[in-house]
Structure formats: C-alpha cells, structure tokens
Design a protein around this nucleic acid. Sequence first.
DNA 1: CCGGATCCCGAAGGATACTG
DNA 2: CAGTATCCTTCGGGATCCGG
Lengths: 153, 153
Amino acid sequence: MATQTAAQQRAQAKVEYDAFLAGCPSRALLDRISDKWVVLVLCALGDDTEPSTSGGDVPRSMRYSQLARRLAGVSQKMLTQTLRSLERDGLLTRTVTPTVPVTVEYALTDLGASLHRLTRGLGTWAQGNMDAVLANRERHDAAAGADVGAGDR
Amino acid sequence: MATQTAAQQRAQAKVEYDAFLAGCPSRALLDRISDKWVVLVLCALGDDTEPSTSGGDVPRSMRYSQLARRLAGVSQKMLTQTLRSLERDGLLTRTVTPTVPVTVEYALTDLGASLHRLTRGLGTWAQGNMDAVLANRERHDAAAGADVGAGDR
DNA sequence: CCGGATCCCGAAGGATACTG
DNA sequence: CAGTATCCTTCGGGATCCGG
C-alpha cells in the first residue's frame, strides 16, 4: 500500500522523464535551474540571515531592491527575467503592494524551498572548495607553461 | 584536537569567501558550476550506469564521443570547452591514449565526485518535480490569460 | 523614488567544415 | 576519434525611458 505522500512518489525513482534527452521537458527544466542567477536568487531567498524570531522556517520574503543589492552585479533585466521565470514555474511568489513607491516582495514556495536546499549546497561547495580549485588551477597552468618551456632552447 | 579531515574543515563553516560578492573568486566559481553543461557532464560521469563488477565506486571514465552521445544536443565546442574548464579546476582528469584513432578518457576526481553529489540532486529534482512545475506553469499562464480577458468588454 | 520595459551592442553559444 | 577553426545566431549587460 502506498504510505508515501504524492510528493515523495514524485521525487523518487520516477523516471518517466530523462534529463539527458534533448527533447525531454526535464532537460529544459534542468537547463533553467542550472543557471547562475537562478542559483543565486534561490540562495538569497532561502539563506536570508536571521532565523526568524518566531523560530520557524517561515518562507522569507525579500524586496526587489534587496535582491538586487544582495546579488551584486546582476542587471535589472536578468533579475526581473529570472524572477518571472521562477514565479511561472511555481518556485516563488510575487506579491505587489501598491504603496506610494510600489513594493514588490518575493518569497520561496515549498517547491522553491526544496530546490533551495540543493542550490544552497552549490553555494557552500563553491565557498568551501575555492582553495582547492585555486590550487588545481595553479598546478594545471604551471604544467602547461612547463610544457611550452620544455620545447624551448 | 582536530578529528576532522582537511577536506571537512574546508567544506564546512569557512566563510572567508562570499559567493554573493561580485568580486569574490567563489562567485566566479559558483557561476561556472551553475552551468547547464557542467551539471550534465558531472551527472554523466558520475551516474554512468553499471555499478562496476568490482563493486566499488571506482571513478568512472567515459570517452569524448560517449559523453557527446549521452549529452544529446551539446555542441563539440561547448563540450570541449566545458571539459577543459573542469580539468583545469581539478574536477576531472583527461587521459590521452595514443592508439590508432586517438582515445581520450575523462573521469571524475574526488573533488569532482563531491560536486557530482550535488549536481546529481539537481538532475533528479528536475525529473522528479517536472509534473509539479508543468502544472504551475499551466495555472500561471491561465491566470494571465484570465487577467487579459477580465479587462475586456 | 521603486520596479520594470525597451533598445542597442558586445560576448557567449550553436552549426558546420576541416585537420592531426 | 577528438578536437580546432570559422561563421552566424542568440543571449546577456548597460543605458535609457515609463507607470505609479
């Protein structure tokens, strides 16, 4: 009997989609979420500092300008485009409050939060393995330089 | 005393790098690994079918043409470029065997394998949540269409 | 002023042909 | 087989303008 939730069944072992196939919708979806701005937006919305005074994991919300500031270097065009795409896919909600200067809040949905757990891993991986990668690059570049020098003289 | 390995210390809690800062090297690294071809290459090299007759998790190796076939739709240019970049960063090894038609094998390093665990999550997430995303898109698009109709007449 | 749409341009990515 | 070289198309960034 099925003791699993629908979500568990979906997330597990179901292979009606194959992300390696060029024509498969899941391939397009993987392409979307494997995007630097998508990853950064999800990280920002999920990681948002303070653990909330109420103690829970209430879906955090950030304003457009907050996101723009946190994701240093993002263009408004890409930020808006990325947010719209994520909203359409149901990963986050967009709430417009018609205050004097209009206020727009973005927050992760449950689906978005589930993806955030993964993208967050990428962020911490990048920070945690930066030194190792840097060392590898140096060794690799030095070896390439040595190769060039070897033919010399 | 430190009971952690150097790798654990590195991967954990060290925040000398901040991926949100535009100028930080880890931001550039995050941008690189948040790339669709990088994710697919890592998935392909790590997931490679048979669990090996020797039973272990011996680093799998795939030939260039195998990868090209598995990652349906990739251009040689991007595949080569991606592989070179990953090699430079120490995520995979490139082994050239000067047989009659030259043979080039690619395999994950330990560092690459550690990242593979994360990218693999993205692949399974995409496949597992495809239905949910598709449903959200339909609702979103329908709502947008309704909005347009609402202003009508 | 905030949030975002638009236009223009340079850079990144794809298709194809050719080479060791 | 495993690339490199050459186009050419598309996408992303910067600046500017708009709606509230």
